[in-house]
Amino acid sequence: MRHILIRSGDVEIRARLLATPTADRIWNALPISGSVRTWGKEVYFRTPVSHDLEPDARIVVSKGEIAFWPDGDAIAIGFGATPIAKRGEIRFTSKCNVWAVALDDVDQLKAVYPGERISVVEAANDDTETWAEEPAACPAGAVNRQHRARRSPQPVRHCASSDEGGSAG
């Protein structure tokens, strides 16, 4: 299973890649970095990747799904309403390919502002077996452990299990 880390400032979000052509293309382009843009409660940034729409591309996504916006060659992460959203949905301007699922709370993106640097790196393979496969399994307030991403020289944090001193919060 392939995992990535999305990082901007103090925000770090782990994600699991899906088995899609878009995920393959992004994986092969790592590391990727860009300048944050926002649109309502959406963070997006341009990438060196180009890809066509996949058959299951959609305009409305669920919280925690990470998408690729082919019209802008950008990674898009919605964490709430966008200016064109109907009540209770995350709606992009046009269809996007969902290629990953966040394992951490994407509400952290509220702390990311336009113009900040954002990066996507491959997570270290030796750490992925300790990662929860669902965001709910990594509660807010859990104690974090330090690990290193293979393609990044800086330490990254991820959720520790409750038997490692974590606490539900």
Rank of each mutant, 00 (worst) to 15 (best):
His3Lys: 10
Ile4Met: 05
Ile6Val: 05
Arg7Cys: 12
Ser8Pro: 08
Ser8Glu: 07
Gly9Ile: 00
Asp10Ile: 07
Val11Pro: 13
Ala15Cys: 08
Arg16Ser: 04
Leu18Pro: 11
Thr20Ser: 10
Thr20Asp: 04
Pro21Glu: 11
Thr22Ser: 05
Thr22Phe: 01
Asp24Gln: 07
Arg25Met: 08
Arg25Thr: 07
Ile26Leu: 05
Leu30Gly: 02
Gly34Lys: 10
Thr38Pro: 10
Trp39Ser: 06
Trp39Val: 01
Gly40Val: 04
Gly40Met: 09
Lys41Arg: 14
Glu42Cys: 10
Pro48Gln: 12
Ser50Gly: 11
Pro55Asp: 00
Pro55Phe: 02
Lys63Leu: 09
Ala67Tyr: 02
Trp69His: 06
Gly78Cys: 10
Gly78Ile: 01
Phe79Glu: 01
Gly80Pro: 15
Thr82Ile: 14
Thr82Ala: 07
Arg91Thr: 12
Cys96Leu: 04
Cys96Tyr: 02
Val98Ala: 01
Ala100Arg: 03
Ala100Cys: 01
Val101Asp: 01
Asp105Pro: 09
Val106Asn: 08
Val106Ile: 05
Lys110Gly: 11
Tyr113Asn: 09
Arg117Gly: 05
Arg117Trp: 10
Val121Asp: 03
Val121Asn: 04
Ala123Phe: 07
Ala124Gly: 13
Ala124Asp: 14
Asn125Tyr: 06
Asn125Gly: 07
Asp127Thr: 00
Asp127Arg: 04
Glu133Asp: 15
Pro135Arg: 14
Ala137Val: 04
Ala137Ile: 07
Cys138Met: 12
Ala140Ser: 12
Gly141Ser: 09
Gly141Phe: 15
Arg145Pro: 05
His147Pro: 03
Arg150Ser: 07
Pro153Ser: 15
Cys159Leu: 01
Ser162Met: 11
Ser162Trp: 05
Asp163Trp: 04
Gly169Glu: 13
